[in-house]
Design a protein around this nucleic acid. Structure first.
Lengths: 243, 243
DNA sequence: TGCGCGCTTTGACCCAGATCAAGACGCATG
DNA sequence: CATGCGTCTTGATCTGGGTCAAAGCGCGCA
């Protein structure tokens, strides 16, 4: 089944996005207010403070949400992967800078009719609540990373998070480990983790030197032993494979 | 009007909590599944991993959510003030350690009937979505604080956040500034900000020495000039009083 | 085929905040 | 009125990660 933009039934994120619970008639309404937008890697989607007359689902690619201080320091506060939701119903202006980290396709809904639909039918709101609660959990895990972990643990944590999230779709698990494409530049990783890009680079080099990860080019990551990486991340639940 | 625990109409958080949008009949149902629990300052409410058969609203006092690593490092990931919601519908086990930071009263709802009500009537879910989105915004602001701010900026940020949130109810604004009771110990502040308690103490001393804040005892904070404090927090929107 | 540009790595040095260690304050208790 | 305990402050020293600087890729483009 190939993806036909006119037919939500063929959409790759149909069952995980904000529309996951929608019935046929609700989908038809959504189809009437939706449109697609694509961005190349590095392009801005919207700036904080801009008027935002749509909300959207990420269909493919990766987007970042970040906050900047006026002196230039920036902190990434969200990483949107396929099926994640962008925007806040009821909010007229964007609260964060949104950038396409890789090539990105969004399924956008005009905000006003979307809001009306949230009032009229329950499925959208229910699903959005669930997704928002998940994001809040992710944000809290992120806070632990930012507040208490060492640089090495931060890198290891980010790699496990990415590996796990890619796992749901694109990830390759072969006999010699797990492999995935790193969608972030060193600088983006630094912004995610509250580090400098130099420190990110040094820690990745260290993990590589010690065999915890293997690099193929700069962006393809191979994880020979996932539990070894998790141990480096300092997380609880250290393996427990055969517990 | 004094607070009568049997009558939600007299509840101090009636119009801000998860029940804010409920109609009379919905309130009656809530009254039938609710019960109150109180905790003294310092007492644990629940530990991460414990079975949690209720959700709750904070009626009075302050509670903290935190995450611990097995080596003892801890990071506070949520600060619950009156009207904030505790727990996640659909989640059987607590995801965080919850501690009463000050004397605390919770209005608890048995989880199962609460979940049923969320399916049957829209008002609870709608309000909870709104509150969760607000919390997510707060978590993201917090991420910027944790990832990119200096120790001094972190302290100033925490004080502005607390002052603003207390403002909605208990705060005193007199001719010589804004004053409020600091509900956190130095250690709790450190856990919030990803610092050590020594650094917290030193930075508070520095702000006091420079007159940005005034201490009355260890816990009563007076802010002579709120915009001066905000400037120390490194936030955008630096005043703008007469812009 | 070589040039330029974005991304990344590595090195040398520095400093904000952690760590280790004493005390000081307040207040409850015998 | 000592004693003890939790909380907070302050000092001395150490160090992880920041800062500044210089190369090293790798790829597109002329």
């Amino acid at each position: 089944m190939t993806f036909d933009p006119r037919d939500c039934g063929t959409c790759p994120i149909r069952h995980r996005a904000v529309c996951a619970r929608c019935e046929t008639d609700e989908l038809e309404f959504l189809e009437s207010i939706k449109f697609y937008r694509s961005f190349e890697a590095g392009q801005p989607v919207i700036w904080s403070g801009d008027n935002m007359d749509f909300v959207a689902s990420v269909v493919s690619g990766v987007a970042s949400l970040s906050q900047a201080m006026e002196d230039g320091r920036t902190q990434m506060v969200g990483l949107l992967l396929p099926s994640d939701f962008l925007g806040r119903p009821g909010r007229e202006f964007a609260a964060y800078d949104v950038v396409a980290v890789s090539n990105l396709t969004l399924c956008c809904f005009r905000r006003k009719p979307f809001e009306k639909m949230m009032v009229d039918t329950p499925h959208i709101g229910q699903r959005l609540l669930e997704m928002t609660l998940d994001e809040l959990d992710a944000a809290r895990e992120w806070m632990l990373i930012l507040g208490r972990k060492t640089a090495r643990e931060k890198i290891a944590s980010l790699l496990t998070i990415l590996a796990r999230r890619e796992a749901s779709l694109a990830l390759q698990t072969t006999d010699n480990g797990t492999s995935f494409e790193l969608p972030l530049t060193r600088e983006a990783m630094a912004d995610y983790l509250g580090l400098t890009l130099e420190t990110v680079s040094r820690q990745i080099s260290a993990l590589k030197r010690e065999g915890v990860i293997v690099l193929e080019g700069k962006r393809q990551i191979i994880i020979p032993d996932f539990y070894a990486l998790m141990a480096e991340a300092g997380d609880d639940s250290d393996g427990g494979v055969m517990a």
